[in-house]
Structure formats: structure tokens, C-alpha cells
Design a protein around this nucleic acid. Sequence first.
DNA 1: ATTGTTGCAAATATTTTGCATTGTG
DNA 2: CACAATGCAAAATATTTGCAACAAT
Lengths: 131, 131
Amino acid sequence: MAATRYSRQRNAVKNYLLSVRTHPTAETVYDALKEEFPNISLGTVYRNLNFLVEHGEALRLDCGDGFIHFDGFTDAHNHFYCRNCRQIFDLEMDNVDHINLIANAGFDGKIEEHILYFRGLCKKCLKSGAR
Amino acid sequence: MAATRYSRQRNAVKNYLLSVRTHPTAETVYDALKEEFPNISLGTVYRNLNFLVEHGEALRLDCGDGFIHFDGFTDAHNHFYCRNCRQIFDLEMDNVDHINLIANAGFDGKIEEHILYFRGLCKKCLKSGAR
DNA sequence: ATTGTTGCAAATATTTTGCATTGTG
DNA sequence: CACAATGCAAAATATTTGCAACAAT
């Protein structure tokens, strides 16, 4: 049922996500794809981003800045949000999945996952004296 | 400047937050206060919730369900979001702030805090067979 | 009397959706 | 040819804001 068909727009959305490490919003993806597809609509971008997320080909990042960001790299990794320049960065860090066990220790339900964002100042903002 | 004045509405918002452990949304607070203030407006509720958050008297919880939830208990504690009944629960668990150090180990910026939500099934949903 | 706060409504802003058309298989 | 995907515009959702009236100090 509802077989998936190829579409150049979806393919372009996916390729764009794989070409950047900036965790773009839908609007940013839209702006980028307008070059190749002048008539592409924001609705199509949203539909394809949601499609990719639902099919495990992208991550939806809701870091609380009012925008949903997307990440084409789906291997487990953590994110850092700079409160100054509002960019999201990937973190290379040891796995912290053990916190799920800590959380489940005194909890009657079933903890399946966690959503985790680190916040602070990125290297550039730190050096430029933001505080 | 801009001295804060007392208002019965703000006081009621704060008292309501302190009377529940349900992490209500603005809409829920609004519905609850309409009993005492039939003419209260949603705008007033939002303004007061934001005021309380900015003054450290409430927490804003953005767990990614599309609503911002509020918590009148500002002592450090973690939250669990049930993906079935969509309620937020407090977790009594050991502190995991050490993850900030793990994250900062290979990072050039300054990690100040983390935003953390656990997800899964709460006790009730687990027992009722949700999956 | 001054000005912070409210209620109301309109405005924002982001994301979703209905529908006629286009394109894939 | 069937129907998935698109482009466009309108709708839906959550939150913010302008402004005149009200209320606290």
C-alpha cells in the first residue's frame, strides 16, 4: 500500500541534508533548493523532511529555539546549541546512554530513550567575548 | 526600573503551578483559572507564565510535543514524557550533571547546561498494554 | 498621578493540508 | 492508467503583541 515513488525534490532534500552539517530548518532547506527548483514549495519541503524522518533517513531536532532543525546523519550522536549564534553543532563525545538506566532505577514505567541537548557558547562566540 | 506590581492573576497562575504536578500547558492553566477569573485572557496567562520563567519562579518544558509545558517546581529534577498518554512526569533519580563534563571533553566551546527528557511508557500505559 | 497589568482582538510565525495538476512506475 | 508527489494557497496551531481600560503603589 502507498508505494513510495521517486521524486527529484525528495532526492534533492535528502542530498542537501547529507551535504551540510549545519542542521538546517525547513526554511533553510527551501531556500537552498530554490536554486535548483525555482518553483519548489515550502509544503513540499516539509512533506519530504517529514517523510525522511518517518523513514529513518533524517533526524528531527527540536532544541527549543522555536524551529525544528533537521539532520541527515542518523548515526547516534549528540548536539550542542549555542545560545549566542543559535547554531547547532555535532558533539563528538562518549556515549551517555547509561543515563537511561539511572533514570529507570526508581521509575515504574519503561524508559526507552532520551532527548538531550547541550547548551552554552560555541568556540567562536566564546572567543569573541559573548557572555 | 519597571517595578513589578502585584496582580491577582499572576498570583493565581503561580499558585496554580504550585498546586499541581502535571506540568500544564498555557491552555490548561487558562482553563483552570477561568473558574476564579471568568474574564481572564490567554494572553495574560502567557504573559504571566513567561514572567515567572524569566524570574526563576517556573520552568519552561519544551519536550517536543508541540506544546510548551510549565513547572512551578524549580529545584533541579528531570522529566519523563510518556509517548502514549503524553503526560509529563517528574523523575526521582540520581543527578547526571557529569554528562556536561563528558560532552565538554572533546569540545572547544563552553557547555553550560543540558536539556534532557526521557521518553517511553509510563507505568499506567505499560500495564494497560500500550506498545 | 503614574505606570504596570489586563482583556480583547488582531497579528505572528511555523507547520500542515486540500485540491487540481504533474510525474512515476 | 493508477495514484504518489507537487505547487499553490488557505488553514490550522501555538504564542505574541498593540492598545485602551483598569488597578496597584
